[in-house]
Design a protein around this nucleic acid. Structure first.
Lengths: 259, 259
DNA sequence: GTGATCGGTTCATTATTCGAACCGTTGGTT
DNA sequence: AACCAACGGTTCGAATAATGAACCGATCAC
């Protein structure tokens, strides 16, 4: 592993639960030597990728990442495009809509939108990592991922996030086959209890799956009619989103029964 | 310069004019060896910080920066906080409002908001670099920056962006003294002709200046009454913004003539 | 066909990074 | 007040990883 990769991997330890990390913690988390971590962080700090908080000397992400994100958006406007689509999707379904993208073998949520229609709603955080077997987004992505990737995901132990989580690899495989047929994934309480979510995969210009759009609703609200409405809205939104990012579905995409 | 800094500096060559850069261009821009650039980019690519476009093999910024930006926002919500304030400021003044932050000795615009009131408006891009002597944001920041920093900025040649740009260091110093007294900076066509902008500095928790909020309007619309209204709105928005990011103005801040 | 340029690769040389041990400080315990 | 552990940060010889000139094959203009 090169020096640069080590430095970048340090940035990976930041998440919503851990927005600030001290030198010693970072050393333990990374398994690297303390002096190494210190030097790497010093360089990242110089570049503005991290900064140290006033009181404690803990590190947190720096302002430079905002600049880069703005430029990434200028080059590939996935986020700004998704914002409008997510808002419309949340409005139309009356539920929480969210976008997640595949990054380095993991699925990260990147944006979400709430509907004001109901007092109860599913709450979301950005930059969370989603489970492949326990969420509709995960199943949607996995169903259209390359076989070796599916293999790798299902070979690892599948944690049970709730009592409803399907943890049998064979059962997950059967579910994936269904997703491939319909183009839609569904999860009942597989990640959070009482949350029923529908997901649809998004495809890039190379026709490879790059993420998913999903609608999450309280299970109590999920009637067959509501689910049908959500699925129809999701199909439309997914097609729109894939189109807007210059993407293209694969050959075996079930276009015949689209909305 | 360490390896990590070199890698990070490569990311610095991306901007709005150049969202995609080929290997050879990057080699020329950086002055590094082609093999070195290739290796560094490969590591950045592995980390998801850059990716290669389908057709040409040029590099562009990758999705990982979006994830980091979302986390930075979770830790220090400057952008999301600013969004609401910028929108209100644009609405209230009927002009274009924008936020810029100090990063590595340069002032970068990071967010902006337009008003729908007028057909003519000043257009903005995010992630642009602002001139210190030619913009109201720059003057606002510089006025409250440490003396050595002012020294350094004024020691370098001051480019004339327009015929109206003040390029005499002594004249700029006099302007800064005025800004310190009023807490507000003003620029008439100093960066773009026919643009009249007002800026107010923002302060961090350490009481140091960290950026500026500004309102830019076509010079043709700038009557004394309009300017007074903008200044009042800007003072309110600036105080709110500094407060919301946990900041605090310095001792010599002119609080007496607020609003 | 020729030559220029592109992205990418090789490999011996060398400069940079690594890591155990070591500071000075801080904050909690006795 | 003495102690101790943990913190952020520093040092320096040993070891590893970065470097860059030369080299590919592909593409393209002429």
């Amino acid at each position: 592993m090169g020096t640069v990769s080590k430095a970048l991997s340090l940035l990976g330890f930041f998440n919503h639960q851990r927005t600030e990390i001290g030198l010693s913690d970072l050393t333990r988390l990374s398994g690297l030597n303390k002096a190494t971590v210190f030097r790497l962080m010093a360089e990242l700090q110089e570049g503005g990728f991290v900064e140290q908080t006033g009181e404690g000397r803990a590190y947190r992400l720096g302002p430079e990442v905002l600049r880069l994100a703005a430029l990434r958006e200028a080059a590939v406007p996935v986020l700004s495009v998704s914002r409008a689509i997510l808002d419309a999707l949340a409005e139309e379904t009356g539920e929480t809509a969210h976008l997640s993208l595949l990054r380095g073998g993991a699925l990260h949520t990147l944006a979400h939108a709430y509907s004001a229609r109901h007092a109860t709603r599913v709450m979301m955080d950005d930059a969370e990592v989603l489970s492949f077997h326990g969420t509709s987004s995960g199943l949607a992505v996995l169903a259209f991922a390359p076989e070796p990737f599916i293999e790798a995901v299902l070979a690892a132990p599948l944690p049970a996030h709730t009592a409803q989580t399907e943890t049998d690899p064979q059962a997950v495989r059967r579910a994936l086959a269904g997703v491939r047929e319909t183009g839609l994934a569904c999860s009942r309480g597989g990640f959070e209890a009482e949350v029923h979510s529908h997901g649809i995969p998004l495809f890039g210009p190379d026709r490879a799956v790059m993420g998913a759009l999903a609608v999450a609703a309280p299970a109590s609200r999920m009637t067959p009619e509501h689910a049908a409405m959500i699925r129809a809205a999701l199909r439309r939104a997914g097609a729109e989103m894939t189109r807007r990012i210059g993407g293209c579905p694969p050959d075996h995409w079930p276009r015949e029964d689209a909305a």
